[in-house]
Design a protein around this nucleic acid. Structure first.
Lengths: 245, 245
DNA sequence: CGACTGATTGAACCAGCTCAACTCATGTGG
DNA sequence: CCACATGAGTTGAGCTGGTTCAATCAGTCG
């Protein structure tokens, strides 16, 4: 409930503040998120519902199966969404980047767990309040529908990757996808940021850490990419695309 | 445009008829489909939009990348939804059973191809007309949202299957899922119908035909299931559940 | 510095794939 | 009615892409 010092690096996992109706208007990722549907008054109303939080790396946002009380909009940072099996096997079902929405669920509980990868800022909403807002606001409902529909498309593409692509192809597609996603949120560059661990990439692509590491090493050896801190630089886009199957 | 003889077995792939406002009301799968949201007048209006078609086994409904003009509601039969790679590899992204909706897409083109597996009856709608109807009808829009949201959940579960489960586990989960889906549309039975080919199951589970066949044989040898024509009978539900990982 | 955590590399292994043969229906037409 | 073809499913035998296990390397932090 205490005000957030927006520049500070708190040790606490959460620094909270209810919106005052001004933050959303100047939000850097608004146009990439579902909030793009809103203008003026509605934006102020949304802002009043939003709790702007900062979350430290490696902190869980919520767990699979837990009561789904909140939904989140990522402002900065990266979040991994994953499902766990009883024996510890993990499948990452997605990475949420700035502008992405997460926690949406029709069921009463979360279908997956969510953990912040690097330090992140998020907008937290009460699910019921958000649902009510969407009920009153046709455009927002449409944006939510579009978003979830897009998520489904991505999930179906991921099925092809997991079911039918070779390790080499999976990594290539993954890199290109990340490249494209960062480009779409205004971070177009030959350097692809990879804030997540190799183990995260592995659990996303249905491989082991070793295979991911070996594959990236091979691509670097073949001068397709260059491994840099926290990412890779694309050296040969043509070859990278050719590896995608 | 000709009237459909509802009992006949035509050789033609399509037997069409525009609704007369009465068919939907007595539709056997209505309560399992998105149409459950509608009553009386709306149902008549929906029926006017619907083209009731019969489609012979192995007939494509539409192809991946094609202009997405129609959406479909399955009344009877089974449809496979799949993505193809340029080299012929195939990933089945889902099976549409009676009551299921398919062809929904925000993009102008279909994200996957669809082929009827066994002889099927479907309701075909023009995408634009359906979109307009959903626009005017709050309940229908909600049902569509629910449906697509449910599809996403299924897709994410499939990611776990494809990314992290062993062959044995994949087949066991698949059988249980089919069992549950048929149960939900009123065909609860220890016998699980499997109208699709082994090759379809393989392409759905990210395996080969041989592995699927061997796995089913092994389960039969272990008296977990009994292979019957067009399906399997569950002999030991506990063991089957235990195989799911 | 030593203690971690994450990434890389090597070597042996194995689950599932590939290739091939065979079975078992179903259909067809002479 | 049988001969034969065709499509689907099963089974075997050997192979291999990716895993597993283990060692090493490279930062980072207290």
């Amino acid at each position: 409930m205490n005000a957030m010092h927006s520049g500070s690096r708190s040790m606490a996992a959460y620094c909270e503040a209810r919106g005052n109706g001004a933050v959303c208007a100047k939000c850097g990722v608004r146009m990439f998120s579902i909030c793009a549907a809103l203008e003026k008054d509605d934006l102020v109303r949304l802002d009043r519902l939003a709790r702007h939080i900062s979350v430290a790396a490696k902190t869980p946002l919520f767990e699979q199966g837990q009561q789904a009380n909140n939904v989140y909009n990522v402002v900065s940072g990266t979040v991994r969404l994953f499902k766990l099996l009883s024996d510890g096997r993990r499948q990452i079902v997605g990475f949420a980047l700035p502008g992405d929405f997460l926690g949406l669920s029709l069921s009463e509980t979360y279908a997956y767990g969510a953990e912040v990868i690097d330090d992140a800022k998020l907008c937290q909403f009460e699910r019921d309040e958000m649902a009510q807002f969407a009920e009153d606001n046709r455009d927002l409902l449409h944006r939510l529908y579009e978003f979830i529909s897009h998520e489904l498309t991505i999930a179906q593409d991921q099925m092809v990757i997991l079911g039918r692509l070779h390790a080499e192809e999976r990594v290539a597609v993954f890199l290109l996808n990340m490249h494209e996603r960062f480009a779409r949120i205004g971070r177009k560059s030959v350097t692809i940021p990879l804030p997540m661990l190799r183990a995260d990439i592995a659990d996303y692509l249905g491989l082991t850490v070793e295979t991911v590491s070996r594959t990236i090493s091979r691509m670097a050896r073949e001068k397709i990419i260059l491994v840099v801190p926290d990412g890779v630089r694309i050296l040969d886009m043509e070859k990278l695309k050719a590896q995608c199957g």
